[in-house]
């Protein structure tokens, strides 16, 4: 049921329990040191370099870059598209998870695998795959290249599994007794769903949606072939960064990148808060 290729069930955090843990020995201390150096070299220093480059010109330069009409249009388009996709996914993802858990029909297992495909596919291939059906040589006569609908479709494709895969396990674990209790208290099936089941799914939907939102904001590969990169029309944040880099405007690229980084960090924090709230409810 839940063979997810990239399980979006949120980060695997160690528990807060620290008793019963070993104290660092010389060997493990060296191990920790090596790991931290590598992590810094690979992740922390480069990300710090991005922040440094964005801050180098001061707040004014940073602000000017982001409020430049063309950049701002790209940012706005990215946020609006990502928000739309997130709303659609929150609804459709929940419906898909519902059908996969509650319904029973021939071929359901295949659908369950299909959900994972957008995760498993390289992003550039995802773009190419969509273009075969909805591109210039579309057999159904739809061409999404260089349209906002195209960006929407690509984002919908790559973010499909997030809500489905976070809601599915919660739905499986839901207690049937609770639904029977609601029924014997007089609640119709719809009322039971709205007042009992849906509230239990909200944390999972929130978690899946924020993962999907973060992914949509930062998506690059699948949009390269689809979005025509027309300023003010179909240019999104990640492609704007690429354009800045290719134009040797590192500060501009870094400014947009910092914004995307911020979204990533906020997402992680939101997920952590959601996870803790759920843990408290028990």
């Amino acid at each position: 049921m839940t063979d997810t290729l990239v399980a979006p069930t949120g980060p695997a955090r160690p528990t807060r329990r620290s008793s019963g843990l070993f104290r660092l020995t010389p060997t493990s201390g060296i191990g920790l040191g090596v790991a931290l150096v590598w992590f810094s070299v690979l992740v922390l220093l480069p990300l710090a370099a991005v922040v440094g480059a964005a801050a180098a010109g001061g707040w004014g330069a940073f602000w000017n870059t982001l409020t430049d009409a063309q950049t701002f249009a790209a940012l706005r388009l990215t946020v609006v598209e990502a928000a739309l996709v997130t709303v659609v996914n929150a609804v459709i993802g929940t419906v898909v998870a519902w059908v996969l858990v509650r319904d029973k029909f021939f071929g359901k297992r295949i659908l369950d695998v299909v959900i994972d495909i957008p995760f498993a596919l390289p992003t550039i291939v995802a773009g190419l795959v969509l273009l075969t059906l909805y591109g210039p040589e579309s057999p159904v006569g739809i061409n999404i290249v260089n349209t906002r609908e195209g960006i929407f479709l690509a984002l919908l494709f790559v973010t499909l599994p997030f809500v489905v895969r976070t809601v599915q396990p919660v739905l499986i674990e839901l207690d049937a007794d609770v639904e029977e209790a609601a029924a014997s208290l007089g609640a119709s099936r719809f009322t039971t769903f709205r007042r009992i089941i849906l509230p239990s799914l909200v944390p999972a939907i929130t978690a899946g949606s924020s993962l999907g939102f973060a992914r949509a904001i930062s998506e690059f590969g699948s949009l390269v072939l689809i979005s025509g990169n027309t300023p003010y029309q179909t240019e999104v944040a990640s492609l704007k960064i690429l354009k800045f880099i290719e134009g040797d405007n590192q500060a501009g690229a870094a400014a947009v990148a910092v914004l995307l980084l911020l979204v990533a960090i906020v997402t992680i924090v939101v997920l952590d808060l959601v996870a803790r709230r759920v843990a408290r409810r028990g």
Partner: peptide, 26 residues
């Protein structure tokens, strides 16, 4: 320990373009 365990997840959420840019800038 806890901060490290949170930071470890960061690379999953960073846009690939930003990753590339970060390595270039460093």
């Amino acid at each position: 320990r806890r901060i490290l365990s949170v930071l470890i997840d960061l690379p999953m959420s960073v846009s690939p373009v930003v990753v590339g840019l970060a390595l270039v800038l460093a």
